[in-house]
Design a binder for these strands. Structure first.
Length: 261
DNA sequence: ATGGTTGGTAGCCAA
């Protein structure tokens, strides 16, 4: 089964782009971030018309995540455990049956940006990552297939940026954020794209500003982290950078994984 | 060279 994650930067501004991409690639599941709308205003119809079930966890104006799935979803949960008082909509999960007899639980997450460092936004980013790490510890104990897809807002290594020097002093490249990422890997979670390929220059985000796309000033900040039981089924991972050159693009592009299940 | 695009909103705000 093909599972994708894509920070769409406003679903109401991206209906045609996302629908065209779904028609072309036909993923079984799409995790979306930054839908930037309340659930009631999410444009469900165009995606239901393409054969997708739609579950959302939105808020007014900012943030917001969603999961689209061709197969019906079960046990949908909204909000990150340990962050129950958080008004920002950044996390949801759903259980999705595979093509055969397997089942995978999927998370769609939008981790805080955290800029600028040294502010409340930065401490919120670190607090959110701590809660996510604690939740992943609990997930790993279940020893079940689990795929956490989304915008982690972390540049883990210099190899994850075309110009790492551009990101010195940025929250995404801060020692604290990178340490949070390493702790997730040290728990035993697998970076799906890196498990599949060691190809350099793989990025998922190019800023709208300063002609970043034209200069290939990209960073890899969108990921699928897999439990070992999900990684056992991994039989492909790729970034679809074509869409960054489309009309009215998001500043992020889709990341896809294929699970043989 | 504290920059300069986009989306959603009425906060120049967040990214």
């Amino acid at each position: 089964m093909l599972i994708a994650t894509w920070n769409v930067n406003g679903i109401r501004a991206r209906i045609e782009t996302v629908a065209a991409w779904l028609k072309d690639v036909q993923p079984d599941v799409l995790c979306m971030q930054e839908i930037k709308t309340v659930d009631e205003a999410f444009p469900r119809q165009p995606f239901e018309d393409l054969g997708y079930n739609v579950e959302t966890h939105g808020q007014k104006g900012f943030n917001g995540v969603a999961i689209l799935s061709k197969r019906p979803m079960e046990d949908v949960t909204r909000g990150l455990p340990g962050m129950e008082d958080d008004p920002q909509a950044r996390y949801m999960e759903a259980t999705i049956p595979g093509d055969h007899d397997g089942v995978v639980r999927v998370a769609s997450l939008y981790a805080p940006n955290g800029n600028p460092p040294g502010t409340e936004k930065f401490t919120y980013k670190l607090r959110w990552m701590e809660a996510f790490e604690a939740h992943m510890k609990a997930i790993l104990k279940l020893e079940e297939p689990f795929a956490a897809g989304g915008d982690y807002n972390i540049i883990p290594t210099p190899e994850d940026a075309e110009f790492p020097e551009h990101w010195e002093g940025d929250a995404l490249y801060s020692p604290e954020a990178r340490a949070a990422w390493r702790r997730l890997l040290n728990l035993g979670l697998v970076d799906a794209l890196r498990a599949w390929t060691s190809e350099p220059g793989l990025y998922t985000f190019w800023d709208y500003k300063g002609g970043a796309w034209q200069k290939n000033d990209g960073i890899r900040i969108d990921f699928f982290l897999l439990t070992p039981q999900a990684a056992d089924h991994l039989d492909g991972a790729r970034i679809d950078r074509r869409v960054r050159a489309w009309e009215k693009p998001s500043d992020h592009v889709p990341l896809l994984i294929s699970l043989d299940m």
